[in-house]
Design a protein around this nucleic acid. Sequence first.
DNA 1: CGTGGCTTTGAGGGAGGTCAAGCGCCGTGG
DNA 2: CCACGGCGCTTGACCTCCCTCAAAGCCACG
Lengths: 247, 247
Amino acid sequence: MSDSTVIPLPTRPRACTHAQTGIDCAHCDVRLIAVCSALRRDELASIERIAHTLCYAPKETLFLENDAADSAYTLTRGALRLYRVFADGRRQVIGFLLPGDFIGIEDDGYRRFSADAVTEVTLCHYPKRDFARLVDDKPHLLQQLYRTAAHDLIDARDHMMALGQRSAREKIAWFLIHLRNRFARGGTPSDQIEVPMSRQDIGDYLGLTIETVSRTLTRLAREGTVEISPRGITLKDARKIERLAAA
Amino acid sequence: MSDSTVIPLPTRPRACTHAQTGIDCAHCDVRLIAVCSALRRDELASIERIAHTLCYAPKETLFLENDAADSAYTLTRGALRLYRVFADGRRQVIGFLLPGDFIGIEDDGYRRFSADAVTEVTLCHYPKRDFARLVDDKPHLLQQLYRTAAHDLIDARDHMMALGQRSAREKIAWFLIHLRNRFARGGTPSDQIEVPMSRQDIGDYLGLTIETVSRTLTRLAREGTVEISPRGITLKDARKIERLAAA
DNA sequence: CGTGGCTTTGAGGGAGGTCAAGCGCCGTGG
DNA sequence: CCACGGCGCTTGACCTCCCTCAAAGCCACG
């Protein structure tokens, strides 16, 4: 994100074409991994009542840093990018969110980062007020939020390790392993990794330029360690990548 | 932390010489900023009952990554260093803790980082079991812990910005401003900053070598922007440092 | 007064950034 | 249907910032 001083504008969210039918938590894909997993089956109605579904197209912006934070979200489909930018345009991608992830933890009133859609995304949206009331009402939901925050902290510190100590090669390896494991979320991780984000995104996530990302990947590909395809990367020698990532 | 493969051993904590008298939360220096600020005056006895005071000398280790996490702490005096190390000895300092800071958030059973004393420190120590029971009992304490976690997350992401996007010069400037503001904690920040940690610590905190830290500081000093003394740094041109740090 | 730890300073090299050009893919419009 | 343009990715040449290696200075402490 070197040059472009174009400021993205928050996009008006749109009702999803496939979401004519309202919220049905019991059959939600992320029921078991999202924060709402803290709610018992008979409590689901209380969150269904305050939630509604939202969709964004790739590149659309959910919100910008310093916006008023008047809603929380659970991502149910697609991938989001969270980031902060310096005045001069340098961008740090804080993280990529995948289905089951939650937004709404750290803001006391205003957002501490910007968020936009990497792919087509679907979200479960909660007005902040209603959500806060719900949390007040259900202590186990607060506990779940606390666990989520704690987990995010671990993630952030892993990320710090990568940014501060690893070489470009190690950063890329770490990114691939990290992405693979997150896609798996408990299930068996596949070495065929979908990579929906651009080189620019990856670079800004790892503190590298797009050229270095590209060069490093092609070098790994030439060595036969990975295989690069238009919308994904396959680990041909997962062990080697893991070793690099652990380093 | 390039070479040394010496593994520090957790140190047996010692009763503090000046702490013969047991815990007295009402007169605690960090009463208003620590997590226990969530407790009403009449609730203090419940935490005094489970807490006791601990002291460590500089360089002593509280615990290591992967240790069982069977206690939580509030730091009441001195400075701690939290860090993780790679197998090959590379070290990332996660953060420095100052009076009022809390340890005990992110571990589900074992520690995610190591911690040791930078200066002489005093801690308020809580056995994990007792502390957990207390939290279960007091929802407002859980809320406070949640806020603390959220705040730590913001901190971690600020740190990520520094590690990923800033030059050596900007990193140092950011570090100085950051430290100054944390020492102030609401009060008026003084441009005379105590810097108890070594160049090695600062380097590992910022993803730089000690040589780069040293060179960058002396360059700032030669420009008259800062003044370096044995145990501290004075900002002679705070504006300039702030501008660099914001970058 | 010597020894060891921490810091500073210098010289040299290399990983990754910068600048620039070219390629492949896809959507658009003639 | 093909030409064109734009965007994202790759590749190359060059350069710079920071790392590496080495030596010397400065305290503090025994």
